[in-house]
């Protein structure tokens, strides 16, 4: 898999795929998509990068250990549910605000942050699995 074409193309592909994964996640509430799908797309990006440039490069590029990303995602999902407690409604009740930023109405909601949490959990956990299996020496 160390062909020059693959190695040259893959960074570009990885960047595009990651961007696409964010797009798919954020539009999930209204169009096909969502955290699970977006997360899996992100995983495929990292797995691809790992195949072309080796696991250490991916780990370096990610800066955080994948499981740390997953942990952050779980925290985010839980915290977005906890926010409803502050407003005196049951755990995980959706809360919405529609602020106008630069003249555009933006929908911000706890389900959205919940979905972003899902995205991070799926990305982190499964990237961790994929990288662990790609690493030849069975290392970290």
């Amino acid at each position: 898999m160390n062909t020059i074409i693959f190695r040259t193309i893959s960074p570009v592909l990885v960047a595009l795929t990651l961007l696409f994964s964010v797009f798919v996640t954020l539009r999930g509430h209204n169009e096909p998509g969502g955290g699970f799908i977006g997360g899996l797309i992100a995983v495929s990006a990292f797995a691809l990068y790992g195949l072309s440039h080796g696991v250490p490069t991916v780990r370096h590029a990610m800066r955080f250990h994948p499981m740390e990303i997953a942990g952050f995602g779980l925290f985010l999902a839980g915290a977005s549910g906890m926010l409803s407690i502050v407003f005196g409604v049951p755990f995980l009740t959706g809360l919405w605000v529609f602020p106008t930023i630069f003249g555009v109405e933006v929908a911000l909601s706890t389900p959205m942050f919940f979905d972003i949490g899902v995205y991070f959990v799926v990305t982190g956990s499964i990237t961790s699995i994929a990288l662990a299996l790609e690493a030849r020496e069975g290392g970290v």
Partner: peptide, 17 residues
């Protein structure tokens, strides 16, 4: 099914390892 797909994949990976 959507969540089931992801979870069954996680378990498949776990069983594989």
């Amino acid at each position: 099914i959507l969540t089931a797909i992801v979870i069954s994949f996680s378990f498949f990976a776990f069983l594989l390892v």
